[in-house]
């Protein structure tokens, strides 16, 4: 069954109590992400991008509102189903890469497949295939500390794809990378989106991301400021 919207949020809000003050990190976000869409959340730091990433990824609980992944309300999931969702439906990419430091690139990529119950031979075969695809076929047995930032992020992309997720969530994926490497990662995400139809959601303030996004959602102080379609941008460029 194919769902029209991979992600839907309904009046999503997250408040933090900071001493006396209530900080509204997110305040009533209504967002629909189509299957196969490449959507970027843009906004200054502190605007609520990462909070939104955490909510959609089921990594944190909202104060109010709902998140649906493939039309399932994730607040209604029990611990088993939530783990299953994180394991099989969502692939995560972080600014700080978050690879397991003691595991090699190959082992980092096989880890989510262990939880998915993929047999050992199949795990290795698939992990090697994924790492080769991201250009790290010759770095399989290197640990994260022996890889550059860009290489670590590519391992993270391979790991995010391990269980064929319906959506890849990326939080500032280029935040710790130089311009050139950042562009490589963005191109890789775009190709993934184009070729495999994986829905991609990035939270970023990297303007390079605008060129590849189908839609850009600008948020400010926890609210949606405006939504732009890239089509508009393309049309205006052709007119020139």
């Amino acid at each position: 069954m194919r769902y029209e919207y991979t992600v839907e949020t309904e009046d999503l809000a997250k408040y933090y109590q900071m001493g006396e003050v209530v900080v509204k990190a997110l305040d009533g976000i209504n967002l629909r992400i189509r299957r196969g869409e490449y959507l970027s959340i843009m906004g200054p730091s502190g605007s609520g991008k990462t909070t939104l990433f955490n909510m959609i990824g089921g990594l944190d609980r909202p104060t109010r509102g709902r998140v649906y992944i493939d039309e399932v309300d994730i607040s209604k999931l029990d611990a088993y189903e939530l783990a299953w969702l994180r394991c099989r439906k969502i692939g995560y990419i972080f600014q700080t890469f978050n690879l397991i430091p003691v595991l090699t690139a190959l082992e980092n990529v096989t880890l989510p497949m262990i939880f998915a119950g993929v047999p050992r031979e199949e795990r290795l075969r698939r992990a090697i295939e994924l790492l080769t695809k991201v250009g790290l076929g010759d770095r399989l047995h290197h640990k994260p500390a022996e890889l550059s930032g860009g290489q670590q992020q590519r391992v993270a992309i391979a790991r995010a794809l391990a269980n064929d997720p319906v959506i890849v969530l990326a939080d500032e994926p280029t935040g710790n990378l130089d311009l050139h490497t950042g562009l490589e990662i963005i191109t890789m995400l775009r190709n993934l989106n184009k070729e495999k139809g994986v829905t991609v959601f990035t939270a970023t303030h990297d303007l390079k991301m605008i060129d590849v996004s189908d839609r850009i959602v600008w948020i400010r102080d926890g609210k949606i400021d405006r939504i732009e379609k890239r089509v508009d941008v393309v049309v205006s460029m052709e007119e020139m």
Partner: peptide, 25 residues
């Protein structure tokens, strides 16, 4: 059919043999 959580029991697995291997590693 793929998709909705709950149409069948969706579970992650981590057999004790895998846990043991992981711990020793």
């Amino acid at each position: 059919m793929s998709g909705a959580v709950g149409e069948a029991r969706r579970e992650v697995r981590f057999p004790i043999s895998e846990a043991f291997r992981f711990s020793v590693e």
